[in-house]
């Protein structure tokens, strides 16, 4: 499969941002404000018992992560909309509180659970060592472990939230499995793409965080372009493979016209081939639309 170069993906993102800079940066600013408000609203006095305090913090962190996760899917849908030249406003951030809430909450809860597990060392150090205002070596190590583990989770499950936008009828478990399979062969591309934003993040950090809004908007646009390229490349590959082989008759269950689910009586295949992963033609969301960039 021939994939688009990271430079071209970033160029696509820059073109989108030039045309819609206000919406791109405004959405990011609104998202950050909402995250701050939700975090502040859910800050409470901790119980004196340290074990109880840890458990309470974990629960609160989980709930906050689920609430923020649904808004994050809305944010990613805004960037995907911009890439496909669709109209949507900044308040599409709350889209998944209105439509397809169940799947959005399940997906957010999945990521929230993984993020909470990754944050356990940091929470334990902060509560048991009472080092909230002092930077100590265990805290630094715990932060490094959290950052690396969260990055690994994002690399493994990158397309899951985008699949929710593109295949809203798919079950959340199928989205997670499909997302994992889609990333096969693309993980290193994603890692290199993510690491290429470090210099810009340093510039954003130097500007006291003001530039970070532009950098994060650019990064999210590029990730949306990466997802679009992933699905498009897979469709082209499937078409090329189909053209090379004689066409076989495929019978499908009338209740499953897209052929996403296995026939009744059969379990979902664990070691499925690429034909089980939905392609651009199966999409009911963004990738089925023509784009003219």
């Amino acid at each position: 499969m021939v994939h688009t170069d990271a430079r071209d993906l970033k160029a696509q993102a820059r073109v989108v941002m030039i045309c819609r800079m206000g919406k791109a940066v405004g959405s990011m600013i609104l998202y950050m404000i909402l995250v701050l408000i939700i975090s502040e609203l859910t800050s409470f006095n901790l119980p004196r018992n340290k074990a109880a305090a840890l458990l309470f913090t974990i629960l609160v962190n989980f709930v906050v992560a689920v609430l923020v996760g649904v808004i994050q899917i809305g944010l990613k849908s805004i960037y995907l909309d911009m890439l496909f030249d669709n109209t949507s406003g900044i308040f599409s951030l709350f889209r998944y509180y209105r439509e397809n809430q169940n799947s959005a909450v399940v997906i957010s809860a999945f990521f929230a659970l993984l993020d909470t597990i990754c944050s356990l060392p940091v929470l334990a150090v902060l509560i048991f060592e009472e080092t909230a205002s002092v930077i100590t070596l265990p805290l630094v190590l715990a932060l490094i472990v959290r950052t690396l583990s969260q990055f690994i989770v994002r690399t493994l499950f990158f397309p899951v939230q985008y699949l929710l936008m593109d295949y809203p009828e798919m079950l959340p478990a199928a989205m997670i499995r499909t997302g994992q399979r889609l990333m096969r062969g693309r993980r290193m591309d994603y890692v290199k793409l993510s690491l290429s934003f470090i210099p810009m993040h340093l510039l954003g950090f130097m500007s006291m965080g003001i530039g970070t809004f532009w950098v994060l908007a650019y990064q999210n646009c590029t990730y949306a372009a990466f997802y679009k390229d992933m699905i498009t490349a897979r469709t082209k590959h499937k078409k090329a493979s189909a053209a090379a082989e004689p066409a076989a008759e495929k019978t499908r269950e009338p209740l499953d016209p897209q052929g996403i689910y296995p026939p009744p009586g059969e379990a979902y295949p664990e070691d499925s081939t690429e034909e089980d992963i939905p392609s651009e033609e199966d999409a009911s969301g963004y990738t089925s639309q023509d784009t003219d960039m």
């Binding site: 696509q12 820059r14 073109v15 800079m21 130097m206 500007s207 532009w214």
Partner: peptide
């Protein structure tokens, strides 16, 4: 200058487009 110069650099780099 440390606050505003990086902002100018970021916006300049983003204006490259395609």
């Amino acid at each position: 200058a440390y606050f505003i110069a990086p902002l100018g650099i970021i916006i300049g780099l983003l204006s490259k487009g395609a």
